[in-house]
């Protein structure tokens, strides 16, 4: 992790704040491929570890991220909004790409909902700089809640289509949009889980090849139906409660496991399972890979206390 500092805090909307993050010694941070995210670690008594997409690389070599304060915050976004100030220190990872622009597509369609706009902005800029065709369809509740509205309208005037679902005479984004595109079109979907699932299914039904459909979300899957389970390693056996996160537990026990998105999207925390039943909740591993005994402990876990999960670390 890199030591960094908050260089500026900007209110984007009532619920979205933009944070400029720079190197603690003032050196320019490394450049990245559009669509990349960072893992941030901030806080004094409790460390909040959260991934956020990089919205912009500034001229002075800083990164900008945008954080939505959610009503259902598990603490991270609330901390960022209420406690983080200019000059605060934090740790950041190197940029990583869960999503990046396709180099073979001749046209790019970006679909964003709410804060899902953040990885899209850099990719839209990438397309514009290279003269590659693209369009952005961005849905938000109201214009006032639409983060980066002015920026997008100014910088991509002909390519942006806004859909404000709570405005009078609201125009809605619908999956039927996806049926009009020619071969060589790539679609990028970023929003809440339901939005991602709906539009990914629609894109596949509209004939987009699987490889031309890109999705990303940093919201972990629902914790519904999680059960306590037992797991064993070469160091011993442990019990995990229904509310406990498997990755956190492994880190607590001292296992050195790299991780990034913490939402089952990137595959960084993959571990090998030698026995027991896995409750897979990620969107990264294929059915075949799961059969081979691979799992992502950031979201997946064991199924029961009767049949311990045997893992190799």
């Amino acid at each position: 992790m890199i030591s960094a500092v908050i260089k500026e805090v900007i209110c984007e909307t009532a619920t979205v704040k933009r944070f400029r993050i720079g190197d603690i010694k003032g050196r320019p941070l490394v450049k990245f491929t559009p669509g990349a995210h960072l893992v941030t670690e901030i806080g004094s008594s409790k460390k909040w570890v959260r991934p956020y997409s990089i919205v912009r690389y500034t001229r002075d070599g800083s990164y900008e991220i945008a954080v939505l304060k959610t009503e259902r915050s598990r603490g991270g976004s609330r901390y960022w909004h209420e406690k983080v100030r200019k000059g605060d220190g934090l740790k950041i990872s190197l940029p990583r790409n869960g999503m990046k622009p396709s180099f073979s597509a001749r046209h790019h369609v970006f679909l964003a909902a709410g804060i899902g706009i953040t990885p899209i902005i850099g990719m839209a800029r990438w397309c514009k700089e290279r003269g590659i065709g693209f369009e952005l369809h961005y849905t938000a509740r109201t214009k006032a809640q639409c983060a980066f509205y002015s920026h997008l309208k100014t910088n991509f005037p002909g390519q942006c289509h806004f859909y404000f679902t709570r405005e009078t005479a609201a125009e809605r984004l619908t999956p039927e949009l996806l049926y009009q595109y020619r071969t060589g079109t790539a679609v990028y979907i970023c929003g809440p889980p339901a939005f991602n699932h709906q539009y990914k299914a629609a894109a596949l039904a509209a004939g987009f090849p699987d490889r031309a459909v890109y999705t990303e979300m940093f919201v972990p899957p629902s914790s519904e139906g999680r059960k306590p389970f037992v797991f064993s390693t070469s160091h011993g056996s442990y019990r995990a409660g229904a509310e406990e996160n498997f990755l956190d537990l492994l880190l607590e026990k001292g296992f050195q496991i790299p991780y990034s998105c913490r939402s089952g999207q990137c595959g960084t925390c993959e571990i090998s399972v030698k026995g027991g039943e896995v409750d897979h909740r990620d969107q990264f591993l294929t059915a075949e890979e799961k059969m081979e005994g691979r799992m992502l402990p950031c979201v997946s876990r064991g199924k029961s206390i009767t049949f311990p999960l045997i893992i190799e670390l």
């Binding site: 009009q180 595109y181 020619r182 079109t185 031309a212």
Partner: peptide
């Protein structure tokens, strides 16, 4: 002809 085809071709 080939470039005018829709996705899914």
């Amino acid at each position: 002809e080939i470039s005018s085809q829709k996705n899914g071709t």
